[in-house]
Simulated scan of single mutants.
Amino acid sequence: MPTEQYLNAVLLLLVSIAAVNDLATRRIPNRLLLTGLSVALVLHLLSAEPGTALLRAFSGLGLGLAVFLPFYLLRGMAAGDVKMMAVVGAFTGAALAFEIAVLTWCAGGVMALVLVVARGRLRQTIGNIGRMLLGLVTLGHGAIVPAQDKSAGTMPYGVAIAIGTVAVLARHYG
């Protein structure tokens, strides 16, 4: 079995465990992510071209981190979600990590809309998004952005990352 198949199998297991844990506890354990990252790096080292494979892993890790970090900095996402996307990128490389991120954003958007409507918090959510955007636009211009009233609720974004990952892997390899 080629290394790529092992990478995909372990990645599917990782995102499944993370999604279930995120649903149950609203947390993605660092131990799970560190184990996943370690397995990804070892499998890349065991590939036919370890130098190229490691470069692909680190570029994917960097891209996964870079695309989700701004949302964490704007308080729109938890740190575990950012770290999970970085680890997913270490498995897949930058190109697939970007595809996964785009599908994750789509799945997360649908999930978020369903949750805020079901919880009756649409108005509050729109206000929070407005404050986040104001903070982004005025960043570094000395403007004071009013604090968020309160969160419109948490969402297990690990589920969205799992959906995006499974969809991309199924399309590419299924």
Results as ranks from 00 to 15, higher is better:
residue 6 Y to N: 01
residue 127 G to W: 07
residue 43 L to Q: 07
residue 134 L to H: 01
residue 72 Y to F: 15
residue 94 A to T: 09
residue 18 A to V: 08
residue 31 R to S: 12
residue 22 D to R: 10
residue 69 L to A: 13
residue 108 G to K: 10
residue 50 P to S: 10
residue 167 A to D: 04
residue 37 L to A: 14
residue 154 T to D: 13
residue 89 G to H: 06
residue 168 V to L: 11
residue 45 L to G: 14
residue 33 L to S: 07
residue 96 L to K: 12
residue 67 V to T: 08
residue 81 D to M: 07
residue 17 I to D: 05
residue 143 A to F: 13
residue 108 G to A: 10
residue 86 A to R: 00
residue 163 I to G: 00
residue 65 L to F: 15
residue 101 A to R: 08
residue 50 P to I: 04
residue 52 T to V: 11
residue 36 G to S: 04
residue 161 I to A: 08
residue 11 L to A: 12
residue 98 F to H: 01
residue 29 P to V: 04
residue 158 G to V: 05
residue 130 G to S: 08
residue 167 A to K: 02
residue 17 I to H: 10
residue 131 R to L: 15
residue 41 L to G: 02
residue 115 L to Y: 08
residue 6 Y to T: 06
residue 90 A to K: 00
residue 36 G to T: 10
residue 117 V to C: 13
residue 23 L to G: 03
residue 165 T to N: 12
residue 110 V to K: 03
residue 107 A to L: 07
residue 135 G to F: 07
residue 133 L to F: 15
residue 144 I to C: 01
residue 89 G to Y: 00
residue 117 V to S: 12
residue 85 M to I: 02
residue 125 T to L: 05
residue 4 E to W: 11
residue 106 C to N: 00
residue 138 T to F: 06
residue 21 N to W: 15
residue 83 K to F: 04
residue 35 T to P: 09
residue 113 L to I: 14
residue 90 A to P: 09
residue 109 G to H: 04
residue 55 L to M: 14
residue 115 L to R: 11
residue 7 L to H: 06
residue 102 V to W: 07
residue 73 L to Q: 10
residue 83 K to Y: 10
residue 126 I to D: 01
residue 132 M to C: 03
residue 86 A to F: 08
residue 105 W to M: 12
residue 139 L to D: 03
residue 11 L to F: 11
residue 60 G to M: 08
residue 117 V to L: 13
residue 92 T to P: 00
residue 127 G to D: 14
residue 159 V to W: 12
residue 54 L to G: 05
residue 35 T to C: 14
residue 129 I to Q: 09
residue 94 A to E: 11
residue 75 R to G: 15
residue 123 R to Q: 14
residue 8 N to P: 00
residue 154 T to Y: 11
residue 72 Y to Q: 10
residue 153 G to W: 08
residue 5 Q to T: 12
residue 18 A to R: 05
residue 32 L to I: 06
residue 121 R to N: 11
residue 41 L to V: 15
residue 156 P to E: 05
residue 58 F to S: 12
residue 40 A to Y: 07
residue 137 V to F: 09
residue 40 A to D: 06
residue 43 L to Y: 01
residue 93 G to P: 09
residue 159 V to C: 02
residue 127 G to M: 03
residue 41 L to W: 02
residue 89 G to L: 04
residue 76 G to I: 09
residue 20 V to A: 14
residue 22 D to K: 12
residue 127 G to L: 03
residue 112 A to G: 14
residue 129 I to C: 11
residue 10 V to N: 04
residue 68 F to C: 03
residue 148 Q to H: 09
residue 143 A to D: 06
residue 2 P to Q: 00
residue 56 R to T: 13
residue 21 N to G: 15
residue 42 V to D: 05
residue 99 E to K: 09
residue 27 R to N: 12
residue 73 L to H: 02
residue 6 Y to D: 01
residue 5 Q to F: 10
residue 30 N to E: 09
residue 67 V to Q: 08
residue 58 F to P: 01
residue 73 L to F: 10
residue 53 A to C: 01
residue 75 R to F: 00
residue 172 H to Q: 15
residue 52 T to I: 07
residue 52 T to R: 14
residue 27 R to C: 06
residue 91 F to R: 00
residue 75 R to W: 02
residue 173 Y to E: 01
residue 118 A to G: 06
